[in-house]
Amino acid sequence: MGIKSFLASRKNQQKACTDLPIKVSDYMSRNLITFKSEELIEKVIDSLIKNRISGGPVVNDAHELVGIISEGDCIKQISESRYHNLPMENNTVEKCMVKNVETIDGNMNIFDAANKFLESKRRRFPIVENGKLVGQISQKDILKAALALKGHTW
């Protein structure tokens, strides 16, 4: 009597894995709260608190990415204003934002993006296509993707 294999056909299993969404664009946030470089820092702080976010992209009128502002940037501005005994009400986003922003490609594999988060110590990466901001991927989005793909790809 022959031995029966209880494994399913591996070809079908591999095909199912390739049909799963594993690109950054499948999990990125598209409806973003953005800021303008001329906005006041106090308004940004208020928006961060109200929307329960830790930062956001800064765009110009053509919706091109010009920087990114975070809670840490705002805290730094508060600290410097206090240290130098200067009012904060005239400080704009442009003075505080990070201008050299690292972006990632929306077609990048979600696991490669996770590795990029580990290497860079960033909390979010903007996604730009044709010079325009189209979305953002955060560490939380990577966690959501990992839960959705659990058991299928690792």
Rank of each mutant, 00 (worst) to 15 (best):
I33W: 00
S138G: 14
S37Y: 05
K76L: 10
E119P: 03
N60M: 11
D141R: 00
E38G: 07
K23F: 15
R30T: 01
E38T: 14
F6T: 04
E71V: 01
L143T: 10
D73A: 08
Q136I: 15
K76G: 06
D26M: 01
G131W: 09
N85F: 08
R30C: 00
K23M: 11
N85Q: 13
T103R: 03
E89K: 13
S47M: 11
V44N: 10
E80S: 12
S25G: 03
F6M: 07
T18I: 10
C96R: 02
R122F: 09
R82Q: 09
V66M: 11
N115A: 12
L133I: 10
Y83H: 12
D141A: 02
N51R: 14
N51Y: 15
M28L: 02
Y27T: 09
I33S: 00
N130G: 13
E119K: 06
V44S: 09
F35L: 06
I137M: 01
K140Y: 15
F125Q: 15
I68T: 03
K4S: 03
H63Q: 12
V58H: 04
S70V: 13
K121V: 05
A8F: 01
I53R: 02
F117R: 09
Q136V: 14
K144Q: 05
L20Q: 10
L133P: 09
S5A: 02
I49C: 02
I69E: 11
D19A: 09
S25Y: 03
K11Y: 14
K11F: 14
L143I: 04
I41L: 15
A145Q: 00
V93G: 02
R122M: 07
G106F: 00
A145Y: 01
I110T: 02
N130I: 11
M108V: 07
D141W: 01
S5C: 05
K50F: 09
S81W: 11
C96I: 11
K15I: 15
K140H: 13
L65W: 14
A148R: 10
G56V: 10
V58D: 04
N90F: 05
A8C: 03
N12A: 12
L149K: 00
C17N: 06
K11I: 15
E80N: 13
M108N: 07
P57Q: 01
M88K: 01
I78M: 04
Q14F: 09
H84P: 00
M108G: 13
P87Y: 07
I33V: 06
R82F: 15
E129A: 12
N60A: 10
M1A: 14
L147I: 12
V128G: 06
P87H: 06
F111P: 09
K132N: 11
V24K: 09
I142S: 03
N107D: 15
I22E: 06
S37K: 12
L65T: 08
S5D: 09
G55I: 01
N107E: 14
N85M: 07
K43L: 14
M28G: 04
R122P: 03
